[in-house]
Amino acid sequence: MIEVKDLHKGFNGTEVLKGITATFLPGKTNLIIGQSGSGKTVFLKSLIGLHKPEKGTVSFDGKINTHFTDAEKQQWRQEIGMVFQGSALFDSQTVEENVMFPLKMFTKKTKEEMLERVNFVLNRVNLENSNDKLPAELSGGMQKRVAIARAIVMNPKYLFCDEPNSGLDPQTAIVIDKLIQEITDEYQITTVINTHDMNSVIEIGEKIIFLSKGKKEWEGSSEDIFSTDNEAVVDFVYSSNLLKKVREVYLKETK
């Protein structure tokens, strides 16, 4: 479980996060939504320790991440998997080397054991026969799958995804969403996803937090998002005519 209390973060005198409090439970896909510039990425990077909060705390299973000893921090890092917006694959390494990298760095597994684990996670993300390809030879969707494989290869307790669907076609985006949700259910991972994608919100949003101007504006599930009266959420989520119609139909049916 991840607990965030009164998180503040700013850059060059501009406050980006203005006291966010939230809880993320294991086995759930937690979505952070909000407009560009609302502080989603800064929030996610603050959770994983890439940004140090100015005020407030982030606890992982009751332990505050800024209070970790070096050994605890190292252990905590290995419990985290992260899928970056642009995949962040090491472009000089093959798919196999990318996924094997955390195993080589942090485990004492033999080459065969590592290879077995790599092939297992690559199969899990439906990416067979691509071991020897370089990231540049893969499509955007395949790169995302490799990034997911690399993020889960160490059996993480926490999975963070920064806009995993950006730049993908709607079909591939749904495949990636489903994959993240399945992995979350299967391994009971605490998953936190930053997204702009409203399909993701409706499809896999077990818990949704809406950020606006660095503050938590709204919190609920994908079902709550249809019935909410919060104007900021409605304006953001139902900005397209298609989604407006979907909402109208949903509200009619539930009446």
């Binding site: 905590w76 890092r77 970056f84 962040a88 760095m105």
Partner: peptide
């Protein structure tokens, strides 16, 4: 700029 360094840091490297 492609966040590969962030990826290393997140892994604890």
């Amino acid at each position: 700029v492609t966040e590969q360094i962030d990826a290393l840091e997140v892994m604890g490297i």
